[in-house]
């Protein structure tokens, strides 16, 4: 299947990308690796009149550390993130989860920024960004914004990004020696998570338990008040609104969330 016709423009810098997007109007889409956008365009579920290809912007694929933070350029591919020595040392949860996205071909093309900006509640990295307390740095017509991951996702495939605003970088506070775990429950290895859990220290985030990635606040609160992991995990479905589809009912997902949070907390403790 073939995307509907569109105009393709290529940006060499962030400034050029923002300018091109502003000129093109509200429905312009940024194209990075294309692994979220192009499949939807081929099925003609998304029909943008214009794409601004940011894939060649060299300044956006860095992975570096500064001031107690790790900075990951939005164009870093899943493969780069998974293989980065810095991330494997400082943010093993992120590196591990990136290595579980899709399949190798997807990881060679797909980018961390694309995954976050696309805001698919079944995607892995948005929940990881929540668990790690990431800050998303954007560039748009009205300048630079720094947005906490917890404020970034607003609904199903929806974020606070304004038209023409580009996600440029993701900043992660260094995790320190806290334990971590990533549980991705799928039918097949390549499938999207039916339910996923990311744990970083005392922060717990859920994949595919609502229209956005979610913090499992009830679990976190229970842990904070001294509950045992199993006891805390029993509250994993509180405050969620899981979807129902071919892969499971809401009740099944809620059950999975409890089981997987329990396993994740156990694994995270074992890694402290």
């Amino acid at each position: 299947m073939i995307p509907a016709p569109f105009t393709y423009r290529r940006a060499a810098t962030v400034d050029e990308a923002v300018t091109l997007a502003a000129r093109g109007g509200e429905d312009v889409k940024f194209l990075a690796g294309g692994h979220s956008l192009l499949p939807l365009m081929k099925l003609r579920l998304v029909v943008p009149p214009e794409l601004v290809d940011i894939g060649g912007i060299g300044e956006l694929s860095h992975i570096s550390e500064a001031d107690g933070h790790v900075r990951v350029g939005a164009l870093a591919t899943h493969d780069q993130v998974a293989g980065s020595a810095l991330l494997r040392r400082e943010l093993p949860l992120l590196a591990h989860a990136a290595g579980r996205v899709g399949d190798p071909q997807v990881r060679h093309r797909g980018t961390i920024g694309g995954s976050l900006a696309h805001a698919d509640p079944a995607a892995d990295l948005p929940a990881v960004a929540l668990a790690l307390g990431a800050t998303l740095v954007t560039r748009g017509p009205s300048g630079t914004r720094e947005i906490a991951a917890g404020d970034f996702f607003t609904g199903l495939f929806e974020t606070v990004l304004e038209p023409g605003e580009l996600l440029a970088e993701i900043r992660f506070p260094k995790a320190g020696p806290s334990g971590w775990s990533f549980q991705k429950f799928t039918k097949r290895g390549i499938d999207w998570a039916i339910v996923g859990v990311a744990v970083a220290g005392d922060r717990v985030a859920l994949v595919n338990m609502g229209p956005t990635p979610l913090r499992a606040r009830a679990v976190e609160d229970a842990l904070a008040s001294g509950a045992a992991p199993d006891e805390a995990a029993a509250r994993a479905a509180e405050g969620t609104s899981a979807p129902e589809d071919l892969n499971g009912s809401r009740a099944y997902r809620e059950h999975l969330a409890r089981v997987l949070v329990g396993r994740a907390l156990g694994e995270a403790r074992s890694r402290r």
Partner: peptide, 21 residues
């Protein structure tokens, strides 16, 4: 994956890459 080719030496699915890219 039937369309897998190497792009700059790494496997990609060429049905999900624009020629322009």
């Amino acid at each position: 994956g039937a369309c897998t080719v190497l792009l700059d030496g790494r496997s990609v699915k060429s049905c999900t890459v624009l020629a322009a890219q």
